Amino acid sequence: MIVPEISQNAAAVADHYDELDPIYRLVWGDHVHHGLWTTGRETPGEAVETLVDTVGDRLGLLPGQACVDIGCGYGSTARRLAMTRRVSVTGFTLAAEQANYAAAHPVPGVDIQVRDWLDNGLADASADSAWAIESSEHMVDKPRFFAEAHRVLAPGGRFVICAWLAETGASGWKVRHLLEPICREGRLPSMGTREDYEEMARQAGFTVTGYEDVSRRVARTWPICARRLVKALLVDSEIRRLALGARNRNSFLGIPRLILAYRTGAMRYGIFTLSKG
Rank of each mutant, 00 (worst) to 15 (best):
W131E: 00
V152S: 08
Q98V: 11
G156R: 01
N100I: 13
P106C: 12
S126Y: 11
S135Y: 06
A132R: 09
H105E: 04
A147Y: 01
E137I: 13
S129H: 00
E134Y: 03
D119Q: 13
D141G: 09
A149I: 01
P108S: 03
A130P: 02
N100S: 14
E97S: 15
Q98F: 02
W164E: 01
F145S: 08
M139E: 02
F145I: 13
D116G: 07
M139R: 00
A127M: 09
A99Y: 02
A147C: 08
R115L: 07
D124L: 13
F145A: 14
E148L: 00
L165F: 00
P155C: 06
V114E: 03
V152F: 01
V152I: 15
W164I: 01
A95V: 01
A154C: 09
A99W: 00
S129Q: 14
C162E: 02
A123V: 14
R115I: 10
G156V: 00
D124I: 05
G156S: 06
E148M: 05
Y101Q: 14
F159I: 13
A147N: 04
G121K: 10
M139I: 01
R144G: 11
D128A: 07
R158Q: 07
W131Q: 12
A166M: 04
E148C: 03
S126E: 02
L153K: 07
L165D: 00
H105N: 15
P155K: 11
P143L: 12
P106T: 15
A166G: 13
P155M: 11
P106Y: 07
I112P: 06
H105F: 03
F146D: 10
D116S: 11
E134N: 09
G121T: 10
P143V: 13
E148Q: 14
D119S: 14
A99P: 03
A132Q: 03
H150C: 03
F92P: 07
F159Q: 11
A125P: 09
G121F: 09
S136E: 04
D128S: 02
P106A: 07
V152E: 10
A103S: 11
Y101G: 04
